[in-house]
């Protein structure tokens, strides 16, 4: 039997002696399609039924537009806060040694582990005008619960771990010799931090910001209890989807969902671009 001539050709998979490729890939694709892709496709089908003009019409409805503004605007602000404090927390946790550091490190993941509804009612009762913190804020003339401030607080809560956990591994990996080199060249600590330590961390900080932002925009459970859900003031986009659904306005729900997915997609794309740029520039993510 003559063996086929060897010629370079791009094949679907590299040969391997390990068995089970067809079976495992088949199962993976089946599950992925049934659980994730088909239902998402249903949304795309439904939304394309509305057409761009249909989606635009929903988006420009004053109540929807206001909800989108609330969700995206406050989430951006909250993600900014989470990034700043997240960086500080990550820095303190990796660079300084203090009693209880391990415990503090574990606490950071609390928003990941605590069910959002639980976080929601806890935040609401804490920041309510008669709540522990709300009372103090009221004295300063700030009403947190049932206003956009409450939404902001909830979004910082759920966004924080994203900000911390994205920069933390990079702070761990900072080569101390880089900082020593800067010091031997005469640079003071502040100069070293701003010129040598921080710049390579910027991509990670941006990535953490984007993740916290995307999470804040989509968040529902921890916000609705504290938000007050006043149309045009403190009503978030995900809640409006729920309201549209309960009114059996599937089209409206789909339009809002599509806009939110679109913006999440752009955010994800931005993250990938940041990381690709960072890899090119510094040789690492």
């Amino acid at each position: 039997m003559a063996s086929p001539p060897l010629r370079p050709r791009r094949r679907f998979r590299q040969p391997s002696v390990i068995p089970g490729f067809g079976l495992t890939l088949g199962y993976t694709l089946t599950c992925l399609s049934l659980i994730v892709l088909l239902p998402l496709a249903a949304l795309v089908v439904r939304a394309s039924g509305l057409g761009l003009s249909g989606i635009w019409e929903v988006a420009t409805d004053p109540r929807v537009a206001s909800a989108l503004r609330v969700s995206f605007g406050i989430s951006a602000l909250a993600a900014l806060t989470a990034s700043l404090f997240g960086f500080l927390v990550a820095w303190v946790l990796t660079r300084y040694d203090f009693p209880g550091r391990r415990l503090v490190d574990a606490v950071v993941d609390l928003p990941f582990a605590l069910p959002t509804a639980v976080a929601g009612i806890a935040l609401a009762s804490l920041y309510a005008p008669n709540g522990l913190v709300g009372e103090q804020l009221a004295k300063l003339g700030i009403q947190a619960a049932y206003t956009p401030v409450g939404i902001y607080i909830a979004m910082v809560f759920i966004g924080l771990p994203f900000a911390v956990r994205t920069v933390q591994p990079l702070i761990v990996e900072i080569d101390k010799e880089i900082e020593e080199a800067s010091a031997t060249l005469g640079a003071g600590r502040f100069h070293t931090l701003t010129r040598v330590v921080l710049p390579p961390l910027i991509p990670a900080v941006l990535t953490g910001f984007a993740l916290a932002f995307a999470r804040g925009v989509g968040e529902y459970g921890s916000i609705i209890f504290i938000a007050g859900n006043l149309p045009y003031v403190s009503e978030i986009a995900p809640l409006l989807i729920v309201i549209k659904l309960s009114e059996f306005d599937y089209g409206g729900a789909c339009a809002i969902a599509t806009i939110m997915l679109g913006i999440s997609f752009v955010t994800l794309l931005a993250i990938n671009l940041i990381q690709a740029w960072s890899r090119r520039r510094f040789g690492y993510v």
Partner: peptide
Amino acid sequence: VQQRAVGFVFQHYALFKH
């Protein structure tokens, strides 16, 4: 260290990558 005016060369270069 900043005022010693020494030039230090590290084994793993310690260049500023960015």
